[in-house]
Amino acid sequence: MTSTTSAPPAQQPKSRPGDRIFAGIAKGAGVLILVILAGVAVFLISESVPALTASPDEISGDGGLASYIGPLVFGTLLSAVIALLVATPLAVAIALFITFYAPRRLAAGLGYVVDLLAAIPSIVYGFWGIFWLAPRLVPFYRWLEENLGFLPFFVGPVSSTGRTMLTIGLVLAVMILPIVSAISREVFSQVPTLHTEAALALGATRWEMIKMAVIPYGKSGVIGGSMLGLGRALGETMAVAIILSGSAAGITWALISSANPQTIAANIALQFPESTGLAVNTLIASGLALFVITLLVNMLARWVVNRRADFSGAN
């Protein structure tokens, strides 16, 4: 007894042209971003191949690709991490002040000023850093060397120009401050009244309410904002190229001496005009390293955010 009846034709929902067009545009935009990303990755890899396969003595400097890129990667990460360590607490504090403490009129003005910081071109930050900030930091660096010189970060001799790793970290911190604080402010202002009132009704002071309801709720947003800031700090070119007196110092933890490793982006900007042939491929290989670093940083951030997704408040 075999039955030959096929399954009834699946009911097609009526499709409207407007829906189809919108879905098409949205899908197209989504695919486009993947195509661009893949294109960049393919370009970086294919152009790096000559450098990756070259024998060590052909690469500028001696000791091959790894010892050329290694210090650059280190310099890039070090400057970006300093920037992040300085900027994130400050940005969160600014965001909390604007959202919960400042009088309404002051809050609006202050938010505007912080956003304005983001609009300043990075070359201007570079000039500001080299002519204004760096000389003023030198006495402070001397003090650090005298009092905290036993730490590897503050060993002498202190740079007399102030164009050091710590200076660039601080300039980068100012540069990423607006994006981190703008995103923090946004998430803090979205904390439901329901939750802040729950904390207040339990007898929380304003600070306790912030600790109990606001910061846990906004944590993933703040991490996301910091990672955007970190991305900008990792890729910052002009300010670093101008300020950091890039000597090929190799890997060093000294933050206030004149021997500093360059960062990848600044090194590319400085070396590119005078490079030909394999040297260009070497620079592109360092660019590939930067690409991989930012990818890893983003994956790490996502993992941190998702780890406690149940408790995120999004459900």
């Binding site: 904390a199 339990l202 846990p216």
Partner: peptide
């Protein structure tokens, strides 16, 4: 007011457990 609220508890219209806490 903080002391007042510690003595007088409140339950709201919509349930509002802290979503970030167990």
């Amino acid at each position: 007011p903080v002391d007042v609220r510690r003595q007088i508890g409140m339950v709201f219209q919509r349930p509002n457990p802290f979503p970030t806490m167990s």
